[in-house]
């Protein structure tokens, strides 16, 4: 009778010591989609609460970065920029890079800053890093607005390739999600991970073609370099926005790496999430 009983009894939650990832968790995630929306909404609300400071910061930060980059890398160091004015060139790299790092920053610390919620309420924990990754989209949109003005100023009109931009943005978010899942779970278990993040981001900055073109990389290192998914993505951004050389094969490697990161990230995160409340 026992198995029959279980099939009749379709609607119950089973709480067990060890649970493998099941299909029902996907449905559960769907059930909690509104909460994801509320977390994103909260992040944005708080960020722009002191409207003046929040908003101006989003404008000032990339502008100053571009100014500094243009002077030191473009003027002094004469870094090549694939025939594009250097401010535009570096800005096109900074757009995805900032979206990536901001998402990474927020998703890594989100479990700790929301520990109070984590220890009192249940919901699929993955919502938290996910919200941290999506909420910087507002900053991205504002920066993109400034970029558009700059582009028009330099007389650049993007071609038909622009339709691929949303796809590239998705790839940035995907990279941030893959890395963010790993780091947020690791940061709960090992609190010192948080301190390695600025270092990792700085390292990544120089390992990605933000202030220089990837064409500078010697050919024998090309595939190794492409293992950094941001390199292909940044090349892609310049391609669709400024009409530079298409990223080609490196972007495919990037996509492969991203998929691998996300899958492994979800598995690791899911394995650890049940214990977050015990250790956070």
């Amino acid at each position: 009778m026992a198995p029959l009983q279980n099939t009749l009894d379709e609607n119950f939650i089973l709480i067990e010591p060890d649970k493998i990832i099941t299909l029902s968790e996907l449905f559960e995630f769907w059930y909690y989609r509104e909460l994801l929306f509320f977390f994103i909404w909260r992040d944005i609300k708080i960020r722009y609460k002191q409207t003046f400071l929040g908003f101006t910061w989003v404008i000032i930060q990339p502008l100053f970065m571009i100014l500094v980059f243009t002077y030191f890398f473009g003027e002094l160091a004469k870094v090549p920029s694939e025939g594009v004015p250097y401010p535009l060139f570096s800005f096109a790299g900074l757009l995805p890079w900032n979206l990536f790092t901001e998402g990474l920053n927020r998703s890594t610390t989100t479990m700790i800053t929301n520990a109070q919620i984590l220890t009192k309420v249940y919901f699929p924990r993955i919502i938290m890093p996910l919200a941290g990754i999506i909420s910087p989209m507002i900053d991205f949109a504002i920066a993109f607005g400034i970029f558009t003005i700059l582009m028009l100023y330099f007389g650049y009109i993007p071609g038909i390739n622009l339709v691929l931009l949303p796809l590239l943005v998705l790839l940035v978010l995907g990279t941030a999600l893959g890395v963010g899942l790993w780091l947020s779970a690791l940061n709960v278990l090992y609190r010192d991970f948080q301190y390695t993040l600025p270092f990792l981001i700085q390292l990544g900055f120089f390992l990605s073609p933000v202030v220089y073109p990837s064409t500078l990389i010697p050919e024998r290192f090309e595939y190794l370099y492409a293992l950094n998914p941001m390199s292909g993505i940044i090349d892609g951004f310049r391609w669709v926005l400024l009409g530079t050389n298409p990223p080609g094969f490196t972007l495919l490697i990037s996509i492969g790496v991203i998929i691998l990161l996300i899958i492994s990230g979800i598995i690791y995160f899911k394995r650890m999430e049940r214990y977050f409340a015990d250790v956070v």
Binding site: F12, L14, I15, P17, K19, T119, V121, Y122
Partner: peptide, 14 residues
């Protein structure tokens, strides 16, 4: 409330 898992045993919630 599924905040933390049990070490052994199980619970069913309808």
């Amino acid at each position: 409330s599924r905040i933390t898992p049990p070490s052994t045993g199980y619970a069913k919630i309808h």
